[in-house]
Design a protein around this nucleic acid. Structure first.
Length: 272
DNA sequence: ACTTCGACCTGTTGGC
DNA sequence: TGCCAACAGGTCGAAG
């Protein structure tokens, strides 16, 4: 399930093969994703070239002369660069075909992803404009979290997964970061000291960087643009290990549901 | 203003 | 073996 490292891995994978390439056609086989795919891209994109492939939060931004194609992978979305004569499979919903014979193919069994066409300023888009800072940017600091969390009662895990606070921290990396920082996931955000937020922010940045380096986390089906899985799963310290022994203290790892999400923690290393 | 919860969707898994 | 219910998960938007 794509979180920020998986989206960044995808971005890096499609940047080189697609940059400066010219779109020949767009094929929409299934229009119904999280929101209807804008049909006008079939007419708008051909003839345009890819100027850059950027990322904001978990959105991939394909910049072209007339605007930007904004793609979200949702939970099961995947973008691959394939030869344009490769037969599409069941969940291959959209192809962006290029004049050089390559094809950017969007696959998404659960169809929680999305496509948007933005003719104007990206930052003004309603899905973008209220997003918090990038977790790997300088503006994401312990002090920032501390200030934003005062007076808030919701569990720290849900706080760091709130895209208005910081983007890109999904369930897997939230669990990992809290474990590394020694913070109980259910701890009310407003009760956490500045020093502990400093530690948490360092953990979030370190884990995201390591995960990007490993090409993301493949739990089941994530694949990067060249079809390879991510290797960060081998480095997960807490996620998916409920019932097993903590790597630090050998206590049995517990799980509970928090905000309808699977939450895993060590009851000894992560105190309330 | 803050928080919770339902909705979207389908492949996989566990229980009977 | 088959069937069904539960679950997984990102994120928006409605309801509390």
């Amino acid at each position: 399930m794509p979180e920020l490292p998986e989206v960044e891995t995808t971005r890096r994978g499609i940047e080189k093969p697609l940059c400066a390439e010219v779109v020949q056609s767009v094929i929409i086989r299934h229009q119904q994703l999280r929101w209807p795919v804008p049909l006008e891209i079939e007419a708008l994109l051909p003839g345009q070239s890819i100027l850059a492939v950027r990322r904001r939060a978990k959105y991939l931004l394909l910049e072209m002369p007339a605007g930007t194609l904004m793609i979200h992978l949702g939970m099961s979305g995947c973008l691959r660069v394939v030869a344009n004569d490769l037969e599409p499979a069941k969940h291959d919903h959209i192809d962006i075909v290029f004049e050089n014979g390559l094809c950017l193919r969007y696959t998404d069994p659960r169809r929680f992803g999305s496509f948007h066409w933005l003719a104007g300023d990206i930052e003004q888009h309603p899905l973008i404009q209220h997003l918090g800072p990038e977790p790997l940017s300088r503006s994401f600091t312990g002090d920032y979290c501390y200030q934003r969390s005062r007076g808030r009662k919701l569990p720290i895990k849900q706080f760091i997964m709130d895209s208005k606070v910081v983007v890109g921290v999904g369930n897997i990396y939230a669990n990992e970061s809290l474990f590394q920082a020694g913070i109980h996931p259910a701890q009310p955000a407003g009760k956490i000291s500045k020093a502990r937020f400093e530690k948490l922010v360092i953990a979030i940045k370190a884990i995201l960087r390591k995960a990007i380096k490993a090409g993301g986390t493949t739990l089941k089906d994530f694949r990067s643009s060249d079809g390879k899985p991510g290797y960060f799963k081998q480095q997960l310290q807490i996620y998916g290990r409920e019932g097993e022994a903590c790597i630090h203290c050998q206590s049995t790892i517990k799980q509970q549901r928090l905000g309808q999400r699977q939450t895993v923690f060590c009851p000894r290393c992560q105190r309330l």
